[in-house]
Amino acid sequence: MLTAAKRQFKISMLSTKYALMRAMVNKATFVMSIVFMILNNATFIIQYLILFSLKEDVGGYTFNQVLMLWALASGTFGVAHFFFKKAFNLSETITNGKLDAYIVQPKNILLQALTSDIDSSAIGDMLYGFILIFVSGITIKKFIFFTIFLILGGFIHVAFAVILASFSFWISRSDIIADTFNSMITHINTYPEGIFGGITRVVLYTLIPVGFISYVPVQVLTSFNIMSFIYVLLFTAFIIGLAFFMFYKGLKKYSSSNLMISKI
């Protein structure tokens, strides 16, 4: 079991390495996409400068907390899209019958598929997250927990995307639904929890789990609380489990490229 996990990890890292090599074939484009992504993310500062000029807090957050919120939003997005880019077009992979190549390999199908590509601009998102967390004031403890939250939040993003994509096993053209919800979670992630009312907040801790990606982590980074940290840990484990369950449940319905062929 342990050696199998170790081998799986080795292969996933190898895939990521090869995909990174591919992205770096053109160095100028590679570097530019990272730098521009950082600039792109930085424009939000203008938005919040204006909001804070109108009011002392936005949704109960101080400017410093907004920085943390953004650090988490952009960092988790970066982790998810860099290491697991395929999660965000898994829907197409399923409907076009492109899972075949991973199924015939003696490894975990989902992990093989997810790690087969990277998004180089996501490096910019990750870097940006770290830049902001440094700007917001850093201690070693904060840095360590921030890094852990990035990984956990990245996993939640990916698991959420996999659950959405798994619907493609049953429903054709559900890729639009997946795209819509994936971009929604990214957007909501950048707004403070306090602007939302009660029912919406319930949704944000369940159906659209932004709460565990950034709201709880912002709390923990502001004033440390071990229980909140454990909640995030537990939720991450739960949603990953759910993602695997949904994917493997759907896989039995997988129709490879046959539906495509018979459509012609």
Partner: peptide, 23 residues
């Protein structure tokens, strides 16, 4: 597809509505 995409737009707007209500 337009209708599905509209859900995304609407939730986005819902967010801004909340934001401005707060502000």
């Amino acid at each position: 597809n337009v209708f599905i995409n509209y859900i995304g737009y609407f939730i986005m707007m819902f967010m801004f509505w909340n934001l401005w209500k707060y502000m």
